[in-house]
Design a protein around this nucleic acid. Structure first.
Lengths: 184, 184
DNA sequence: AAAATAAGTCAACATGACTGACATAAATAG
DNA sequence: CTATTTATGTCAGTCATGTTGACTTATTTT
């Protein structure tokens, strides 16, 4: 790959980087990271967006579908926490997904107020199809970025998340591994 | 930090990971990365969003302001390429930024059709303020993610970008280093 | 002089957020 | 067992930000 890491301003060994004394001027290479993050996310969403258009869905539908497919039995309240949007905002896209037979709702077994969410067979198919280009992109990016990239980039992204949400993220991930699918 | 990299399914040395034969089932830890990327971006944008509200601006204004501030003398066409939005969409937010004295336009010196974009003093102040929380977040994330994180995460993000845009990104970054500010 | 380019503008529309208020059913607490 | 809380749904209105399509103006290039 092309080397974008041209921080090779030659330094004598043991030297601290010379800060322009009065500075507080941000490191340009850190600002690059802001922009890289923007560009990466911009392109990351673009392949699924194209597919969604075929189905008359948008990015909001994708997010709901993805999380419901990955974490079957999710409650509406869980989804609101994950997506950090309002109930009214979620309601619209969720209704459309249910109406088109992508997602189905079942009352909670122990608490019948809850609506546990599940993907239908069709929903699983679509979710998988939407995941494909994103997984390819990630796989390719990890391959091109060196062997340590997986662990390191994973940690980096994790640490970019509000630490107040770290616990919730870990809990969520652990849920994807447990095969008890919290059914009904 | 909490270890989210629990890929320690013990393997005998030299072993390939055992794929469930018929599979093509995606690696769960790769799917985690999809979600980490979503969560990270969700939180990454949240601090500036709060500040922008004070000014009656939105995320779209932020993007324009950021790039104009970082790359003074940018043309409208450049901005359209960077943001990948339509001219009409840009026009609205750009007009508001100009009206509020955040950005100013000067006709190009050699081509007077062009409108070169620059931040005003006030614009620079706001751009800096919006950058601050994002830089803190990135700095903290890099620190928490190990010494190799900077180079590696930078490469990872770069490789998440469409390769067709790699050249443009590199060119852009080189522009931020050249002190000839392409004035008017 | 004609064509291409950079930018701006008008109009209509879609998506996905938001706030605020209120409704229903079911679970839990006093 | 009644009262309250909780989980969810819904109506109504608004805003921000994106889209398409058509057209104008100024300027440069051919």
């Amino acid at each position: 790959m092309t080397d974008i890491n041209s921080k090779e301003t030659p330094t004598r060994p043991g030297d601290e980087p010379i800060k322009s004394s009065a500075s507080a001027l941000p490191d340009p290479s850190l600002i690059d990271l802001i922009e890289l993050f923007f560009f990466a996310y911009r392109d990351f969403t673009q392949d699924p967006d194209a597919i969604l258009t075929e189905f008359g869905f948008g990015r909001a539908h994708h997010r709901v579908l993805h999380f419901v497919n990955r974490y079957p039995g999710l409650r509406v309240a869980d989804l609101l926490e994950i997506l950090k949007i309002t109930k009214q905002s979620l309601a619209r896209v969720l209704k459309q997904l249910v109406d088109k037979g992508i997602i189905e709702q079942r009352p909670g077994k122990s608490d019948r107020r809850e609506r546990r969410l599940f993907t239908t067979a069709e929903g699983q198919k679509l979710a998988t199809r939407l995941m494909e280009p994103q997984l390819s992109r990630i796989t390719q990016a990890l391959k091109s970025s060196g062997i340590e990239s997986d662990q390191t980039s994973r940690k980096f992204l994790y640490n970019m998340i509000n630490s107040s949400d770290h616990e919730a993220v870990l809990e969520l991930f652990s849920r994807s591994r447990s095969k008890q699918e919290l059914k009904g």
